[in-house]
Design a protein around this nucleic acid. Structure first.
Lengths: 212, 212
DNA sequence: CGTGACCCTTAATCTGCATTAAGACTATTT
DNA sequence: AAATAGTCTTAATGCAGATTAAGGGTCACG
């Protein structure tokens, strides 16, 4: 049913060269950085390649980095006491991911952040980020806006969770993340929607064979 | 069952005097303001008294203000297509409330913000807030941290919603908001927990008469 | 190229919570 | 002080989605 080859298949062998320009371009959507700020930022970023299923944060660890995704896709999830995973967010290209609670308060995280595809990321440590905040106020501004947008996303998600059925939430997911639908297995989408894969299967079936 | 008199009963006739010093004290928990910043902030705040059940934001309106609660309590909620309310957050003394989505993008809100007690608030308009951001970088910083904390709160709430039963969520609510338990009717708490008042009643009953 | 680790689906059964209804109690308004 | 509107509880019935089980498909990797 998954028609298109995955991103990683298209790309072939990703080059090992630095791709800091992507993050600079990203900031142009907010308050663009001048050359001094660019240098301050890029000199503090570390580029890493992450394999599928590799963690960049595990439960119990303290989140040390704010991570920018250049390529690939991550899920951030918690595990309940019966062992089931619950996806809080997906994060793909040109987006940030971190457990802000753990990062800020330097307390052990209750979450995992795991690559669902082979990925390339840029990471900045908390200390370096704080340095940028203190010395270049524009970063305070830019990250304020980034967090605000993430807050809005979560707020809409929470409202949906309370006020819509699983079927409606699935429809919304398809509209909101058309790019991710073909990249993620249904088990992951089900976990994001707060239902079981079996029930998602039922929903998809009902959708393609609508009753009288 | 509600033993203690409400805040408003204790206070009697609240004075009409300005209480800007509360918000200045609040900012001391973040980056404290110097006298110029205090003046810039307080000269842009408007103090208002709000009656119980009065709205400061209604669905369809554009959210114009960031609101600081001096006294009283508000709920922010959405209404689903069958007319049921779903509380996203409660906001009491020394906390901020706004529909950030509507405020930022100047689009009609899908939410209501309503006083659940007679309240006193301070409001700053979007334009004035943007002025502060632009001219006093400390406000970028302080509001970044405020939003981050609100993001953390929502993230924890979403995780709980997915991974805990209604009974467990009720227990958490009691732990996390002991001060609000006696101030809010159970209908409002049920709406926050994502259940009906009837089922909350059942939970409370099971809690006080635990089976064998 | 085979074998195990996922993944997808169907179907039967089960359950947490909703819905509906109704009565008692309690605030708030007049 | 009465009228009204909101609140709390109990109980019967209903349903969305979980659980369990099982069969078949597909992909990664030795």
């Amino acid at each position: 049913m998954r028609q298109e080859p995955r991103q990683s298949d298209i790309t072939g062998h990703p080059r090992q060269t630095s791709r800091m320009e992507n993050i600079v371009r990203y900031f142009n959507h907010y308050l663009p950085l001048n050359s001094e700020e660019k240098e301050a930022l890029t000199s503090r970023l570390v580029q890493r390649k992450i394999k599928r299923k590799q963690y960049i944060l595990q439960e119990g660890d303290i989140c040390k980095y704010f991570t920018f995704v250049l390529e690939g896709c991550f899920k951030m999830y918690g595990i309940d006491k019966s062992g089931a995973e619950h996806n809080l967010v997906f994060t793909a290209e040109d987006d940030w991911i971190a457990d802000i609670d753990s990062l800020h308060k330097e307390k052990p995280s209750r979450l995992f952040i795991e690559a669902v595809e082979p990925s390339t990321i840029l990471q900045i440590s908390k200390g370096d980020l704080w340095y940028l905040y203190t010395n270049y106020p524009k970063f305070d501004r830019n990250f304020r806006v980034i967090i605000e947008n993430k807050y809005i996303e979560l707020q809409n998600r929470l409202l949906q969770t309370f006020s819509a059925t699983a079927y409606e939430r699935y429809e919304s997911f398809l509209e909101q993340y058309p790019g991710l639908t073909n990249r993620l297995p249904n088990t992951q989408i089900a976990s994001y929607l707060g239902i079981t894969p079996e029930f998602l299967s039922k929903i998809r079936n009902a959708k393609s064979h609508p009753g009288p």
